[in-house]
Every structure is written in C-alpha cells, then in structure tokens.
C-alpha cells in the first residue's frame, strides 16, 4: 500500500494488546516518550477474548494518572484496528502525532535533559 505515516513513531510489537500493562505505559513516559498509541484488535475480535478490552481499561487508568501528575492524559490513546486497516493506522498515526506536537515535548524529557546538563562547562 506504501502508505506514509510519521517517522517519529517507533513500533513495538506485542502478541496482544492485553499484554500491555499500566507499568509498560508509565515506563515509556518515564523514559521520555512524548506519547503512546496502543493499537488493539477490533472489539469482539480478540483472539484472547478480552485482551483489547483490558488494554482499553489500562489506557484509561494511565490517562487518569498522567492528568494527575501533570503530563496530560491526551498523550496516551487506545485504538481498535484490524490487520487490514493500514489506511486507518496511517491516519491515526498522523492524527496523534499532530496532537502530541501540539502538546509539545514530554516535560519528563525536558526535565531530564535539564538535570543532565552540566552546571558549568570548562573550556579545555
């Protein structure tokens, strides 16, 4: 299909969206991710019955946590897609990428960079 989607997205493959844990999502943000998309199968089509429904609940919980810790819950989103919906995947990627760009870089990444920066650089 040769569809274009933003190159700033890193794909992490998992066997089922039900494998995604709250801790995985929080760790991504701790490591400086600006946003995370969880793409699960269509509701009712989960090969493990309720994996995608569990993922949706966990994403919702992470949204609430992000709002409480000042990171904005809009940085994480769950979508339901089938393997044949490449066009929709590209569309979602563009949509979320634009939303994240609007929200700006993750405050975690900015704070870390600031903390890592030397207080004074000495010229050799």
């Amino acid at each position: 299909m040769r569809l274009q989607y933003p190159s700033n997205i890193e794909i992490i493959k998992i066997p089922c969206s039900g494998k995604v844990d709250i801790l995985h999502l929080l760790t991504a943000f701790e490591q400086g991710a600006d946003g995370v998309i969880v793409a699960g199968c269509m509701e009712g089509d989960c090969h493990y019955q309720v994996g995608n429904l569990r993922a949706r609940q966990r994403v919702q919980r992470v949204k609430e946590i992000l709002d409480k810790v000042g990171l904005n819950g809009g940085r994480v989103e769950m979508f339901n897609l089938s393997a044949g919906m490449g066009t929709r995947f590209a569309e979602i990627s563009r949509e979320i990428s634009a939303r994240i760009l609007e929200l700006g870089p993750s405050p975690i990444k900015t704070a870390r960079e600031k903390a890592d920066r030397p207080i004074m650089e000495v010229a050799e």
Partner: peptide, 19 residues
C-alpha cells in the same frame, strides 16, 4: 508488587515533571 510499581512510577513522573 504491581501497585507498588505503578505508584512509584507515577510519583517519579509527578516530581520529575515538576523539576
């Protein structure tokens, strides 16, 4: 164990973003 991990991570995110 799981809830401890989630709480710790949430607290780290909170204080890191607040510098």
């Amino acid at each position: 164990l799981k809830e401890v991990g989630v709480l710790s991570s949430s607290l780290r995110l909170n204080f890191t973003q607040a510098n």
